[in-house]
């Protein structure tokens, strides 16, 4: 059973699609059909979703199951960062807000990589304790997905036990939005979001296309049995996949908390639909497809608020996903099977 990972040859597809979307959006906003500010906002949210969705898509491609816990990994990452920024670091006299143009301080630059590592380790631990045992038993992928639902619930429960159910915030300094042409206001933190996302996407691209382990991951995603008889230790590949997936989830959670200027235990569960919509739109197992998918979902749901109540945003993402399943179930960049 092979599932094309579709990670190669994505360059043209992705680039063309992005160009096309960009042109359409620009045309529409110049014609004043939509407000450009919504588009910019949608792109920022899309970038955040993309980080989480890329991780989800990698895990989906290699472990072949829908990791329902990805959203709650995001939540946990965001809260761990809160613990560092709000509790641990201040005790060590590491504190501050308002780094450069941003709302947060330099401790964020320490906390982000730290949380990524912790969550990556946790994900590997979960694999050893839970998923690997089930794989060894040869259970079907739906049972693995079911298990990840249990993990998701337990993670959220743990977050609520440790931090309570109330809304929280990172230590922050309020900032003026940048005023750009065409009535576009950009939050300064948006620049940070863009920088982090671009860095991670480029790093992931280099990892997947240049390194031995990266190529082994793509190979395993293509065909696990063939990978094994080629000498690839697929269990090791799976660990890397979990680590990257969870580190990306942590980043996405932190960026989301920064962007929304608040943390809530349910934040990760709520983004599960846009996350999966992005993955399906881009083609399962195709991380760069997930990036494009997330941008499309982000912009569409944001622009929809021009006509719909903003609270309908997840429903818009859901409708896009259903439309994809109807028209092209393999996603935009998926190979027809």
């Amino acid at each position: 059973m092979t599932m094309p990972g579709c990670m190669g040859g994505w360059r043209w597809g992705v680039a063309h699609t992005l160009m096309a979307i960009f042109l359409v959006v620009m045309a529409l906003s110049f014609l004043s059909v939509i407000r450009l500010e919504l588009v910019v906002n949608g792109l920022l949210i899309g970038l955040i979703m993309a980080v989480g969705a890329i991780g989800l898509s990698l895990v989906y491609g290699i472990l072949k199951f829908a990791n329902i816990a990805q959203g709650d990994f995001m939540t946990l990452g965001a809260y761990m960062c809160l613990f560092l920024l709000g509790t641990l670091f201040p005790r060590m006299n590491i504190q501050g807000t308002g780094l450069g143009p941003f709302t947060f301080g330099y401790p964020m630059l320490l906390a982000l990589p730290l949380v990524m590592v912790v969550l990556a380790t946790l994900a590997i631990g979960l694999d050893i304790g839970v998923y690997r045992r089930l794989r060894g038993r040869g259970v079907s992928t739906v049972v693995l997905a079911m298990t990840s639902l249990g993990v998701a619930i337990a993670l959220r429960g743990a977050v609520q036990v440790l931090w309570g159910g109330e809304t929280e915030q990172y230590p922050r300094l309020s900032r003026q939005f940048y005023q750009a042409p065409m009535d576009v206001r950009i939050p300064p933190d948006g620049i940070f979001i863009g920088l982090v996302t671009v860095t991670l996407v480029v790093a992931l691209y280099l990892f997947l296309s240049r390194t031995r382990m990266g190529k082994a991951m793509r190979a395993t995603s293509d065909n696990e049995e063939l990978a094994r008889v080629s000498g690839i230790n697929t269990e090791r590949v799976i660990w890397w996949t979990w680590a990257i997936g969870a580190a990306l989830a942590a980043t996405a959670g932190i960026l989301l908390a920064v962007f929304q200027a608040q943390l809530l235990p349910i934040m990760g569960w709520r983004v599960l639909i846009p996350l999966f919509a992005a993955v399906i739109l881009g083609g399962i197992g195709n991380p760069f497809g997930a990036l494009v998918g997330a941008l499309i979902i982000g912009v569409t749901s944001e622009v929809s608020t021009e006509w719909l109540s903003p609270s309908y945003k997840p429903a818009v993402a859901f409708l896009l996903m259903i439309a994809t399943l109807l028209v092209r179930p393999t996603g935009i960049f998926g190979v027809k099977s």
Partner: peptide, 26 residues
């Protein structure tokens, strides 16, 4: 002892060169 399976015996999304590299993985 190396083995070529009956079907799906290449990595479709990898380039030819990368397929060979995977053969040399160990």
């Amino acid at each position: 002892l190396c083995y070529v399976p009956q079907s799906s015996n290449v990595f479709p999304s990898l380039s030819i060169h990368e397929n060979l590299e995977m053969g040399a993985f160990v």
